[in-house]
């Protein structure tokens, strides 16, 4: 899913996305709530009509953005507390509020609010607490969901790198018979060997007839391995990010924009993707410590 943060995928029109046969894009609830506002979107018939996109949309819960973007976010049983970026006042994103915002945006797939902790958190009790809280919150999300006939609510598997916690979370979520499931809390800097195990643990348990979305995974090699492990969906900023740095993906690896001298010599050869004169970007996934 290309990421269209604020009702537009950077650098591409929806016609171009359709021409690329993109079936679904991701919108960020937090950003859309700021601009243009979910009430306005609701009034104008939802995000699809607003941006002229006829295919599917998935929105996130908004929680991740708050934790990652806002310094003073704090998680309690009630929800995610954060400081308003406009006036500094205390705000609260509860599971109910997240679902309300997503109901107003009107995406085809909406995500439950979860309690996210970094996969490298050294505190096992915190990881356990987050998993159990995520389960309590999923029930609040289900109860708050106003359009279950139109919008598919996905639950998120938490539990850090602890396979027992992951298994418990999977079993509990499956009981709720949700339209789809996400594997969350990964890509936080954990070792690859740990990462694969968690993904496999979840995909083995999750029902085969429901889509599985692995959150925050985006490097090509990770996509391939996750697909092999049974994952169906990813959010991926890799194409946009590489394009921004002047990198083109080719069969021979990543082609990096270089100085003028090299291009002068190569002329049209370079265009054909010949190895000569193309700077090979060191694939970042060769670094074993980094998955994302």
């Amino acid at each position: 899913m290309p990421v269209g943060t604020m009702a537009a995928v950077k650098g591409l029109t929806v016609d171009e996305l359709e021409a690329l046969d993109v079936p679904i894009i991701l919108g960020n609830t937090y950003h859309l709530a700021l601009r243009p506002g979910t009430e306005l979107l609701d009034e104008l018939g939802g995000l699809h009509d607003f941006m002229g996109w006829r295919r599917s949309i998935l929105t996130d819960s908004g929680g991740f953005q708050m934790v990652s973007l806002l310094k003073l976010a704090n998680i309690t049983e009630e929800g995610v507390t954060f400081q308003s970026p406009s006036d500094g006042s205390q705000m609260l994103l509860t599971p109910e509020k997240s679902i309300q915002l997503q109901n107003e945006i009107g995406a085809d797939i909406i995500m439950a609010l979860d309690d996210v902790v970094s996969s490298t958190t050294p505190d096992p009790e915190r990881v356990q607490e987050a998993m159990h809280r995520t389960l309590r919150w999923i029930d609040r999300c289900i109860a708050a969901h106003k359009k279950p006939d139109k919008q598919n609510l996905f639950g998120i598997v938490q539990g850090g790198l602890d396979l027992d916690l992951r298994a418990t979370c999977c079993h509990e979520l499956i009981k709720r018979n949700l339209p789809g499931y996400a594997i969350g809390g990964l890509s936080g800097g954990e070792a690859k060997d740990e990462f694969w195990k968690v993904v496999l643990c979840c995909t083995k348990l999750l029902p085969p007839n429901k889509p599985r979305y692995c959150m925050g995974v985006g490097y090509p090699i990770d996509l391939v391995v996750c697909v092999a492990l049974g994952v169906d969906m990813f959010d991926c900023v890799y194409p946009a990010r590489t394009a921004r740095f002047g990198v083109a993906l080719t069969d021979n690896g990543n082609m990096v924009r270089r100085g003028r001298g090299a291009r002068e010599k190569e002329g049209r050869k370079e265009r054909k993707g010949s190895k000569k004169g193309i700077g090979e970007e060191k694939e970042e996934e060769e670094d074993p410590g980094r998955v994302f």
Binding site: T5, A8, L12, R35, L44, F50, M51, R244
Partner: peptide
């Protein structure tokens, strides 16, 4: 295809479709 509201939004959010080109 597009409304004045959407174009206004794109201008306002700096989400210019051209910006990433």
């Amino acid at each position: 295809k597009y409304s004045r509201a959407y174009i206004h939004h794109l201008l306002k959010t700096n989400e210019m479709l051209a910006e990433a080109r």
